[in-house]
Simulated assay, not measured.
Amino acid sequence: MEETTQTRGRWSWFILGIMAAVAAADQVVKQLMLSQLEPGVPVYLIGDWFRLYLLFNPGAAFSMGQGSTWIFTTIQLAFVLGALIAAPRITGRFEALGLALIAGGALGNLLDRLFREPGFWFGHVVDYISVGNFAVFNIADAAITTGVAVFVAAVFASEYAAGRTEKRGQADVG
């Protein structure tokens, strides 16, 4: 029991650290992009396939829900708080990493919604990475996407391992 408590504490600090690092990196790079780029003017890095393109997104992915900024702010705040509450219950390294990346990305975008124009709770998210014909996004968005993939893979791997252990246990009994 004590080892589980220590492991849980370790993952809590790990989650908090990764979450803070992702949000900080996101905000630092956004400030850099705001100081270097002009909104709507692409800076081509790899042909016309990969470019920097500054825009301000009031909605969610692909600029959906532009009139619902307050809903996204509320969801992001709830997720960040939920991740902090769930952190002590996480026992696996990859579940912790996935949760931390998602929460860090949510926190990075939440800070935009709270402290950027047009005002508190309704701020627009700073996006600047443009790849091909895909949506324009930022580090926070990339962390969220990567975190979801890591978390889902970790849950499936954990379920698979539990199933194998259960089958092995049944074979030993039989």
Rank of each mutant, 00 (worst) to 15 (best):
N133Y: 12
A149G: 13
D48M: 09
Y53F: 14
E3Y: 06
W13Q: 00
V150W: 13
V28F: 08
N109A: 04
L54K: 06
L37T: 08
L34K: 05
D112F: 01
G92D: 03
L114Y: 08
L32Q: 11
E166M: 02
A86K: 04
L101K: 00
E95K: 04
G17T: 12
E3L: 12
T69Y: 06
D127W: 11
G123Y: 14
V148W: 09
I90A: 00
G169R: 09
A106H: 12
Q27W: 15
T5F: 14
Y44I: 11
V131W: 02
V29W: 08
V155R: 11
V22K: 03
N109M: 07
G169T: 01
T73L: 08
G119L: 07
H124I: 10
L45M: 10
N133L: 00
T7D: 11
I15M: 01
A24G: 05
A143P: 03
Q36N: 09
I75H: 15
A100E: 05
A86F: 15
A157H: 13
A106F: 04
Y44P: 01
L97G: 05
F79Y: 09
A143D: 03
Y160F: 14
D172E: 12
L55F: 10
A23P: 02
F50V: 08
G163D: 08
F122C: 05
E38R: 15
S130C: 01
N109Q: 04
D172N: 11
D112L: 07
Q66A: 03
A153N: 06
F120V: 04
F122Q: 09
L107M: 14
G104L: 02
F156V: 06
V41K: 10
M64Y: 05
P58Q: 12
L77C: 08
A157C: 07
P88D: 03
T73S: 12
Q27Y: 03
Q76P: 03
G163N: 14
G105W: 11
K167T: 07
L84R: 01
T91M: 09
P39F: 04
R93N: 12
R116F: 15
D112N: 13
W121F: 15
L114K: 04
G132K: 15
Q76S: 13
E166Q: 03
M19V: 05
F151M: 11
S158W: 07
V125M: 08
R164E: 15
Y160T: 14
D48E: 13
E159F: 14
F94L: 05
A153G: 09
A171T: 14
I75Y: 10
F56Y: 15
D112I: 03
V136A: 15
N133V: 04
L32V: 12
